[in-house]
Amino acid sequence: MKTANYIVLLLFTALMIYASLGLPQRGDPYAPIHLEESPVHSPGASSYYIRNARRDAHTNNMVTVILADYRGYDTLGEETVIMTAGLICFMLLRRRKEKGSENA
């Protein structure tokens, strides 16, 4: 069983490394993620963010602008995730009420 696990892991790593050979060069400013325009002429999101973040939201830190404004809904989801975690810990682990006392 363990050897099968190791083989699967090695196979997975090898396949992933093979797939990564086809990825664009790291640091290449003309890689698809850095482009101004995609092959089908839709605007490239990243360069739009870099160009317009300060103009749109009067804020220098682009990451903050994307986090809270352009993709603010993701961040709302992220807050929801952590609230879920808090609620689940509360639900699973909080102390049972001792008889008569209210400080649960």
Partner: peptide, 18 residues
Amino acid sequence: GFVYMTTGSLNMADVARI
């Protein structure tokens, strides 16, 4: 991550066209 790095977009409709 792979989709984003090869197409440069996270939007489904956009990726469908690229």
